[in-house]
Computed example of a mutant assay.
Amino acid sequence: MSEQAVITEFLTLDQFEVAEGITLQSPQVAYEVYGELNEDRSNAILLFHALSGSHHAMGINRGIAGNEFWTEELHEGWWNDFIGPGKGIDTDRFCVIAPNYLGGCYGSTGPSSPDPATGQPYGSRFPHVTVGDQARFAARLLDHFGIDRLHAVVGPSVGGLCALTFANLFPERTHKVVSVASSYKNTILNRLLLFEQILAIENDPYFNGGDYYDCGTPNLGLALARMISHKTFVHIDAFERRAKREIVPEKEMLSWYGVTDPFQSYMLHQGKKFTKRFDANTYLRIVDMWSSYNALREAGLETAEELFAGSKREGHHFLVFSIDSDFCFYPEEQAELVSDLEKSGIPVTHLTVHSDKGHDSFLLEPHLYVPQLKFHLEHDELPGS
């Protein structure tokens, strides 16, 4: 584990207009930086995080002043084994910039942030955000650093949607693209699972349409949403290993029913733990942007050939990881992306990770990703070329 201490930094923009036409005044982006920019600012890597992740990807960050959601679970960077000197993303060579999403709850302006016009949390008045909004929001952060063109844009899971969309909207601003266990279209099954999570939060008696910051929090709904999603993150065989054998009585979320097996106890524990480190409104905003995602629609185009024309023109190189046991972003989704990239004449390396850990493999098994990631970032030629 890396013990390097890092801090969250903040940039306040003058304003930012989201896709639905609403303009936020003085929005703030929270971010962390690992490594140093070189003289011509050509060694930057933009890193997007997963749904419930944060901008804290490397080192130790023990707190963000005034942030109630920054629990001990977040202190260690979520990609510590991937980022650092000599690692997959080598900070002796590259400068990693990792922002927190617009709508987030870890320092970027979101529903729990005070509206400058009223001084009260935005709540229900915070707008819908799209994956395209996240790409444009990150581009504003790059402008602040004077970075015209990235060495690479990288994203796992939902972060992969953002990485791909950034490359599509700003093809001239990157050279390489890394998509880990992600996609470029949303499946019907996934949209239904995400809708179940939205319903869980919306129907919590404390949700109050999103205006709950002074009258209780929708913890039951958020916990249930997390439990629904957690089933897709962890392979079913891993539940056998993770669930403790004892059954913990549950009175807070259940009244008549009694927990009958350790797997129910495990899922309840995961749901309740999550409510301490995440905001329900933020969860809704990110799930909403994920549910409605379609790379063609984000770019206002109709065909994959049009979508990847900018990548072809700018000479992008893609690295796409699949996980064979992934129930969140199925391997078939990455295969479709790779097929359309190849048809468009884009250099792409597609690697399938064989794992029994499901979608969470990209967090838990660095040895299956780091060598390939390091080669892709440090070489222009493709393996076998």
Rank of each mutant, 00 (worst) to 15 (best):
P371A: 02
E333N: 14
V353S: 04
H359N: 00
P371N: 07
V348S: 12
A304Y: 14
V287G: 12
L319D: 03
M289W: 04
R297G: 13
E365C: 12
T349F: 00
K343P: 02
I346Q: 10
A295C: 14
G315D: 01
E302T: 15
I323D: 00
V370I: 12
T352R: 10
T303A: 03
L364P: 03
G358D: 06
E314L: 07
E302C: 08
L296G: 08
S291K: 13
D324V: 06
E333C: 14
S344K: 02
Q372T: 10
G345C: 06
F362W: 10
P331W: 01
S322V: 00
S291M: 15
A299P: 05
E302W: 08
E342Y: 09
P366A: 10
H317K: 15
H359F: 01
E365W: 01
G315P: 04
G345Y: 09
H317D: 15
A309R: 10
Q334V: 10
A299K: 13
F308C: 08
N294P: 06
L319P: 01
D288K: 10
S355W: 01
R313G: 02
E365S: 14
F308Q: 05
T352A: 04
S292P: 02
P331G: 12
K343M: 07
K343T: 08
A295K: 07
D288Q: 14
E332F: 00
F318C: 09
S311E: 11
H350S: 11
S355M: 01
L351F: 03
E306R: 00
S311N: 12
L373V: 04
G300M: 03
L373S: 05
